[in-house]
């Protein structure tokens, strides 16, 4: 079922990870990514894995759910691994056929790339799993606010993002419903060649677009009738406040980066 897709979904909770300021979490995610790419040794990867696991444990997100969410990007991971295995130059050749050479460096590189990608995506999923879309866009708006001086439309961007995020599950549900209705009339989405399957999508896309426009219209009207006039002078019910725990978390993030640079930077 479409609705079982967990990509970018928020799992409400009340752990320390959930309660952190979204700006802190965004910054920590960036720290995590930087550290992950700076780590170059196996012990470095082990260290980053430990960081990830402790963050997941602190957020009380089910590890299985996190692993399941990696499914959609499995293809990209496999693709990267295959490229790395076959096309890494090196002198320690293990096997050789036609134009391909498998080297020890290639295998090691592929394994590290796989680890890195998996951990990268799992880490960013942790952000969206523990931060509601609204908090996330509030955080982004607040971070981008200084750019308003150079006429960067931070509020508009954040509003667009929050609307888009808000409507992803709605549109998925709608697609599901339309598909069911057409299936009830004998539409077949599962068999036939590529052309036949692409044609079978038409009965879904037309009503989906029509309803998306209808929803957009209704939303615009609802926003106007509540006097929405853009970001200028708009106040918030929930203002973002950096608390001591946020500063502690940021310090920890900085510590992780420094540790990685100090200990695990050695090139292989």
């Amino acid at each position: 079922m479409l609705r079982d897709i967990t990509l970018g979904q928020y799992f409400p909770g009340n752990t320390i990870v959930h309660r952190l300021d979204p700006r802190t979490k965004l910054a920590l995610t960036v720290c995590y990514m930087v550290a992950l790419f700076a780590a170059r040794t196996w012990s470095g990867y082990a260290f980053m894995l430990a960081v990830l696991i402790s963050a997941v444990a602190a957020s009380r997100i089910n590890g299985k759910t996190l692993l399941k969410s990696l499914k959609p990007i499995l293809f990209i991971i496999i693709f990267t691994v295959v490229l790395n295995v076959f096309f890494t130059a090196g002198d320690d050749v293990l096997a050789h056929f036609w134009i391909f050479k498998i080297t020890k460096q290639g295998l090691v590189g592929a394994a590290q790339m796989m680890l890195r990608l998996t951990m990268l995506i799992a880490g960013t999923f942790l952000l969206t799993y523990t931060t509601s879309p609204l908090a996330l866009t509030d955080g982004i708006e607040s971070i981008l606010k200084p750019l308003a001086k150079i006429h960067f439309p931070a509020h508009v961007l954040a509003m667009m993002m929050s609307i888009a995020l808000r409507f992803i599950p709605t549109l998925i549900e709608e697609t599901d419903k339309i598909m069911s209705a057409q299936k009830a009339r004998g539409a077949d989405f599962e068999s036939g060649g590529l052309v036949k399957r692409a044609k079978a999508l038409l009965p879904i896309l037309v009503p989906l677009f029509v309803s998306a426009f209808r929803r957009a219209d209704e939303l615009a009207e609802a926003m106007e009738s509540r006097c929405y006039r853009g970001g200028e002078g708009r106040t918030r019910m929930k203002t973002l406040v950096m608390r001591p725990r946020d500063w502690v978390a940021l310090a920890a993030g900085a510590a992780v980066i420094s540790a990685v640079y100090a200990l695990f930077r050695r090139l292989p």
Binding site: A181, A184, G186, P203, I204, P207
Partner: peptide, 21 residues
């Protein structure tokens, strides 16, 4: 299963939102 879809006709809520042709 296909046969069942034709023998048991199901009209969803607000079916007008599924018109497409």
């Amino acid at each position: 299963l296909r046969e069942a879809r034709f023998r048991v006709g199901l009209v969803f809520q607000f079916p007008e939102y599924q018109l497409f042709e």
